[in-house]
Design a protein around this nucleic acid. Sequence first.
DNA 1: CTATCATATGAATATATGTTCATATGAATA
DNA 2: TATTCATATGAACATATATTCATATGATAG
Lengths: 112, 112
Amino acid sequence: MDKVVDQEVVDKVMNSLPDEEILYDVAELFKIFGDSTRIRIICALFTSEMCVYDLAACLKMNQSAISHQLRILKANKLVKNRREGKMMYYSLDDEHVKSIFEAGYAHIMEEK
Amino acid sequence: MDKVVDQEVVDKVMNSLPDEEILYDVAELFKIFGDSTRIRIICALFTSEMCVYDLAACLKMNQSAISHQLRILKANKLVKNRREGKMMYYSLDDEHVKSIFEAGYAHIMEEK
DNA sequence: CTATCATATGAATATATGTTCATATGAATA
DNA sequence: TATTCATATGAACATATATTCATATGATAG
């Protein structure tokens, strides 16, 4: 006899899944957190708002790389910025950023 | 006068950053969540353990793609599996999986 | 207005990664 | 043991993305 799907289970699971579009957005959000440069930027901003130049110094990366990543973070509303003269100060834009980070961080620390 | 880093801020931030290796691991973890196929697999497994065949049916994807992603999820200890005859049942392997997902999900839902 | 500084951005490059196809593996059954 | 079914896996391909380099933009000081 051929294997067929367990229709009962499949139906139950399919009904429980959030909309595909929502899950796509959730994945896109996690993708933002899924890069070590961006995670380090986010972590740095937990402590203090910073300008691009100082962020680059902290992370020992060049200014352009930081700028590109800040652009992505800002486009996803995870950071915001304010200008002060020539300098642009970045800070976190959402309380969720910390809770998301901490959920992942807890998982990693438990493994150690 | 040349701009120099704000050494005080930079020092404070650098001291607050977790080890680079930890942050790398955190980023790697979020990267796993940062793919819509894997997020959908994870979500499906919130409801019920499932075999590969049924998972593929739920997500309307081919078996190979699901298998490849399950392999990644398992390598990262987010899912575990048990064999029952020919079938391999997958389920979530860690309580953190749900808390991580929910942190991201909450952020997305708030935007809607 | 010009020069300089801080930041942003486009193009190019290298690398990573997801899916598909073909096929292998491993278990059950005839 | 040969066949069939469920799953796993390697290779190939296409796509996405992070960084660097060069340069543009925007703001301030002289």
